[in-house]
Nucleic acid binder design. Structure first.
Lengths: 152, 152
DNA sequence: GCATAAGTATAGCTATTGCTATAACTGCGC
DNA sequence: GCGCAGTTATAGCAATAGCTATACTTATGC
């Protein structure tokens, strides 16, 4: 009692393959969000005070210290950070690279939001979530726009 | 060997409370993402073909059918959908409301991305992830911008 | 140098979201 | 009305990300 949807979609539904790909991309981004947040924050903490302690990371992220410890173990397995027991945590070359990239993207998104009229506080908070879902092409458009409207 | 960070932040670090709040908001958004995606998709499927079957939802989302079944049970517990065993799934009034809101937000974000010069395909894919992290204020800015540049 | 405070590690729990495999049910053809 | 194909339900597993409680290590003060 269902006609094959081969030719004419009768509603607002888009191509299933595109749909799947969009969701797949969103899931993938969600998986990487936390990793990027951690690496970005560790880079900031090291840049600010010379070291990144678990308690500081936990306080910044708003989570408990064991949660951070577990995550750092995973980041170490992924080769992004290096940790010495009971000592601080450092970024590997790969970690530095990812942090730099994340920070740059974050900065562009935040600046862009301000450029389109969002208040600085909201821009900062929304950028934290949006940055992970911005593709290279969109980031490029954001950068161009922000550059062109930096003082409007 | 660490001075108290009471007065002057010497690096690029923002106020810890703001930091925590940003991450908390991002985590909260992440928790709601899936729910909104499901409800939005169910509304689309019903609007398109009159019914939303688990296999169709699974095919669109790119996940397995049992994953959908489990999620629908949760949505039913949350009062967003109503399901009859071995029959289709329907949206409750609350589900309809959430779907309408999600769809509207999705539409605005996608339209906005196109307005700033992103290609339609990329706009569609990025919107799927971005929409969940856009606050009311930012959405308003997006809408204003898209309305003013609909044909530029 | 020893006690205490601060920071880190570990154990064990929960919830979420994905999977595969398989059982149960519906509806259709014949 | 029986069987088979399609659909849904259920069971059980894994990974992730959070938590509390507690043990361990380091560093500091005296």
């Amino acid at each position: 009692m269902r006609e094959p949807p081969s030719s004419a979609p009768e509603g607002s539904l888009i191509d299933p393959e595109v749909h799947v790909e969009s969701f797949r991309q969103a899931r993938e981004a969600r998986r990487l969000e936390l990793v990027e947040d951690y690496v970005e924050l560790i880079a900031d903490l090291i840049g600010d005070g010379g070291e990144a302690r678990q308690v500081d990371i936990a306080a910044r992220l708003g989570v408990a210290q064991p949660t951070v410890a577990k995550m750092l173990k995973r980041l170490a397995e992924d080769g992004l950070v290096q940790q010495r027991p009971y000592r601080g945590v450092f970024l590997t070359a790969a970690g530095e690279a990812l942090a730099a990239q994340s920070r740059e993207r974050h900065r562009i998104v935040e600046r862009f939001l301000c450029a389109v009229g969002v208040s600085p506080e909201t821009a900062r908070r929304d950028a934290e979530g949006i940055e992970h879902h911005v593709s290279a092409e969109t980031l490029d458009a954001f950068r161009r726009f922000a550059d062109g409207h930096s003082d409007a």
